[in-house]
Design a binder for these strands. Sequence first.
DNA 1: CCAAAAGTGTTTCCGATACACCCATGA
DNA 2: TCATGGGTGTATCGGAAACACTTTTGG
Lengths: 231, 231
Amino acid sequence: MSYTYDYPRPALTVDGVIFGLDVKGRMKVLLIKRLKGPFKDCWALPGGFVDMEDEDTDAAVARELEEETDTKNLYLEQLYTFSKKGRDPRERVVSVAYYGLVRPDALKPKAGDDAKEVKWWPIKRLPKLAFDHRDIVKMGRERIKGKVRYQPIGFELLPELFTLRSLQGLYEAILGRDLDKRNFRKKILATDIITPTEEFEGGVKHRPARLYRFDQKEYDRKVKAGFNFEI
Amino acid sequence: MSYTYDYPRPALTVDGVIFGLDVKGRMKVLLIKRLKGPFKDCWALPGGFVDMEDEDTDAAVARELEEETDTKNLYLEQLYTFSKKGRDPRERVVSVAYYGLVRPDALKPKAGDDAKEVKWWPIKRLPKLAFDHRDIVKMGRERIKGKVRYQPIGFELLPELFTLRSLQGLYEAILGRDLDKRNFRKKILATDIITPTEEFEGGVKHRPARLYRFDQKEYDRKVKAGFNFEI
DNA sequence: CCAAAAGTGTTTCCGATACACCCATGA
DNA sequence: TCATGGGTGTATCGGAAACACTTTTGG
C-alpha cells in the first residue's frame, strides 16, 4: 500500500532526550546505537517515526521509549521541533523533540527493534551523535536548567525516597554550581512539599541520612492556592 | 505532479500568534478571516503550509506573515507543535506554532491569498477561532508571560522610542497586575540597558515624557558578561 | 578513636516594597 | 489656575547568602 499527495510531505519523527542520574549524582543521557543506516552504528537519541494512522507525537515518543527502554509513564515534555533541510541525508524529516526525566531504578535499557545497544552516557562526555542530535541534547540541557528552578521536576530523577544530600546534588548537577547545605535545606524544607519519613539510607559507613519523599498532592494543593515553587 | 510514500504522512503547517499593543497599551492578537473551508469565514491565526521543497518552519512562518501582514523581521520564536488527531477535520495536519511580537507602527495588515480580512483583536475578547487555535493563543500568552520577566522581549512591542510609562504599561498588560511607578523606574533604569534620548513625546496636554531607547548592543555585552535581565 | 557525612542557627547584607509630593505643560 | 500625568527619594522589611561546629555511624 502507498500514499499519494499533491505536494511533497515530510516524514515525521520524534526524538527523546532522556536524562538520568547515576549513583554518584552525575547527569546521564540515554542513547541508542543505530542498527541501520543512515548513521549506522552511530549513537543517537531514542525515537522513531510517528504512526500517522492513529498517533500524535506525545503517544509516539512514549511508545518509542517504552519499546527501547521498558519504561512507562516517565516524565516527558515537548522540547522543540527541528525541521532544517538536510538534517536527514535521505529526505525531509521533521522531528519533534521531547525531553524526559527518569528515576534510575525505574529504567532497564533493553535492545528494541532499531537499536543494538542502549546505554547511559555521561552528559559531559557524549560520543559523536547522529543527525543534529547534538543540538537537540544541548537544547534539552538548557531547557531543563531553566525549568528546574521554577518547577519541582527534579524529583522525577530521584527514587521515591531520597536524602536531602542527593536532592542537593541533583540541583548542583543541573545548575552547574555548588549550593550551601544549610541554606538549601532551609529553603527546600520551607516549601513544605517534601516530607520526612522514618526511614534512613543503608549501606554507608557513616551516619545514615534520613529519607524524604516528594509530596505531589500537597504540591498540587499549594499550586492551586497560588504557591510558586522556586529554588 | 504528485508524491507517493510507503506510509501516510501529515501535512505540515505553521501558525503564528502575533501580539501587539494598541495605543492604549492593551494587548492585541492578529487574526485573519479564512477565505476557504474548512472554517470558511471563521477567524484564525495567520499561517499556512510549509513548502517542503525548500523551506523549514522558521522560513515558512516568516513568509506567511510577510504575505499576510506586510511585515518583515518581526520577533518570532517557536512555541509548540500541535499534532492531535482530528485537529483538522480534513486529514492529519501537524502545525508548528510560533509566537511573535510586533511594534504597532511596523505592521500594516493587508489581505493576502488566504484571507479576506486581517485584524487586530483584543486578547480579552477574541472571536470564535478555527481549529484548535484558541489553545494555541492560550499557550502563546502563557509563554510570553513567563518569558517577559527574564528576557527583554517586551521592547519588541514598542516603537523604537518610548516613554517609561508605556514600558510600564506593557509589563502591566503582560503580567496582569499593577506595578509601582517609582520602583519600576528604578529597576529598569538600574539595568542600564535603556538609555534616555533628548526627545520628548508630543501631542499631549500635560507635561511630555522623555523618550527612551532600548540599547541592544549594551544588552548583548552585559549578557556576555553574565548579566541576567530580570524585572 | 578515627573517618566520613549528617544535621543544625545566627548574623549580615541587599534587593523588594511601600509610600507622597512637586513639576511641567496645554487648555 | 487647573487638570493631567511626569518625575523623584527614603525607610522598612524579608529573603538570600555567608559561615562552623556537633552528632551519629561503621570500621
